Amino acid sequence: MPRRGRAKKEGPESGEDSDEYRKKRDRNNLAVKRSRVKSKQKTQETVSRVNELKNENTVLEEKVNTLTKELGFLKELFLAHASNNVDKSKFDGLDLQKLLEDTSSASTSNN
């Protein structure tokens, strides 16, 4: 099986048993190990961060749903109060239905 890379030199110092060659191989082996450990650590950190962000996203989505329900309830409460209120002069220049539609369309467009 042919070897890849540059051709070996001939001579007494060029063999795989030479001290210089062995030192280079040892240094390279250590560098490769460090590189692999660093790469594996970075991958694990990325996976961990992705999981954190997924959990945070789930919590935020639940909060949005809760706040949306609360907003709906408050709108209904406001409309009931506004329709039963004897002093309707406070609401005279306001189109309440339009106002409530605007806020609901703004909240649904944010989703």
Results as ranks from 00 to 15, higher is better:
96 L>R: 12
86 V>R: 13
87 D>H: 10
30 L>Y: 14
108 T>P: 12
25 R>H: 04
18 S>D: 10
33 K>G: 09
87 D>S: 14
80 A>P: 05
72 G>V: 01
1 M>P: 12
110 N>F: 12
102 D>N: 11
48 S>F: 01
67 L>Q: 11
58 T>N: 02
7 A>R: 04
104 S>V: 05
103 T>C: 11
43 T>M: 09
11 G>R: 02
5 G>C: 04
58 T>C: 00
37 V>Y: 04
15 G>F: 03
108 T>V: 07
51 N>A: 08
86 V>K: 15
84 N>K: 11
96 L>N: 12
31 A>H: 05
65 N>Q: 09
75 K>M: 09
97 Q>R: 15
78 F>T: 14
80 A>F: 11
35 S>N: 07
91 F>M: 01
33 K>E: 07
70 E>F: 06
20 E>D: 05
68 T>L: 03
7 A>G: 09
59 V>Q: 14
53 L>G: 01
96 L>D: 06
3 R>P: 15
88 K>P: 08
110 N>T: 10
66 T>M: 07
97 Q>C: 00
21 Y>M: 05
54 K>I: 08
66 T>K: 02
94 L>E: 15
21 Y>N: 00
85 N>D: 13
86 V>G: 14
100 L>K: 08
20 E>H: 07
108 T>C: 07
26 D>K: 06
70 E>K: 14
46 T>S: 13
96 L>Y: 07
60 L>W: 12
14 S>Y: 06
58 T>Y: 03
